[in-house]
Design a binder for these strands. Structure first.
Lengths: 183, 183
DNA sequence: GTCTATATCAGGATAGAC
DNA sequence: GTCTATCCTGATATAGAC
């Protein structure tokens, strides 16, 4: 699964070849098929693996010091923009999943669920900053912030946007949204 | 080229098969190769075609009534979110191009140029609303707005975000950015 | 310019031994 | 569980006639 994540980060979901994956993992292709049935099964397991790994990252943050809700939010959003290989692999794989879902309805359900959960988490963090704000407002802000994140993520991964600048843009967007909600 | 745009919208850049493209255009595959040399050449021509077509849409708007600069901006940004087949085809193809660029460095130059031009256009429109604002501020706002657009576009095309809601989110984002710049 | 074959090849998948 | 060897399909690309 770790090898698969690396290959996906390098070639994309649609560029993944079973042979390269096998080489990356240091086994034969036949063994991959033995464990995961076929290409689609391999992909499913890999995406699940990546999803779990991403949850692990965020988990630590949310329980963190109750100190500053706003910093928690910013921290969480900025997790996506780091130069660690695992983060890059996760972001790449998720980006691929999103892009693939446009043409493969079978992926849409999984994707929609994950996206909704993500939006809900962000809305929740926003709500902790100022508990009086009605839920629909929080959701709309969360949708804009996560939407922006996804857009900038693609730019970053394709080399069109330096990491530091991406982080600045996100921070400022957070400031704008909070400003709007608390005014 | 029109057939190619339809096929790309249906299958994605990476899912495009020369045979399906030929069938869509009502000719043989050999004829495609005769005109466009190979798959890559066909893709290049198609993307150029799509790009030109997109320019045509926006062109009309920018020269429009000098009435309300802000409305011009909002109009321009919302052009991406319409249910017309051509718009959907263009959005899909551009989204595919962006996603592909992560794995194909050869595409990055074209993409970066187009993205920069797009950001510049938006920054320009923002500048017309309030000419005293320094350029870097305008650019940052434009980067956030276009970034958001790209993120929401993917969600819309994958069926995760209704068109009307996408438009609301964009409108509100425009309001936030203008509010920020003119405060 | 356009077609009907067809060559070619990459890559997914399996058989069968160990 | 794991390998080597191989089959087979699907897709790009070309040859050669009209």
């Amino acid at each position: 699964m770790e090898g698969a994540a690396r290959v996906i980060a390098r070639r994309g979901v649609r560029g993944l070849r079973m042979e390269e994956l096998a080489a990356e993992a240091g086994v034969s292709t036949a063994l991959i098929y033995y464990h995961f049935k076929d290409r689609a099964g391999t992909l499913r397991h890999t995406l699940e693996f990546i999803s779990d790994r991403a949850d692990r990252y965020t988990a630590g943050e949310e329980e963190g010091a109750e100190g500053d809700a706003r910093q928690d939010l910013e921290q969480t959003l900025l997790l996506e923009f780091q130069d660690a290989p695992e983060v890059r692999e996760n972001s790449t794989a998720w980006g691929e999943l999103r892009a693939s879902a446009i043409f493969e309805p079978g992926l849409r359900a999984d994707l929609a669920r994950a996206t909704l959960a993500w939006i809900h988490d962000v809305a929740d963090l926003l709500g902790r900053i100022e508990p009086t704000i009605p839920a629909p407002e929080l959701t709309a802000s969360a949708e804009r912030l996560t939407g922006l994140l996804e857009g900038l993520s693609t730019r970053w991964l394709s080399g069109a946007l330096p990491l530091a600048h991406a982080r600045e843009l996100v921070s400022e967007a957070v400031a704008l949204e909070i400003d709007r909600l608390t005014r």
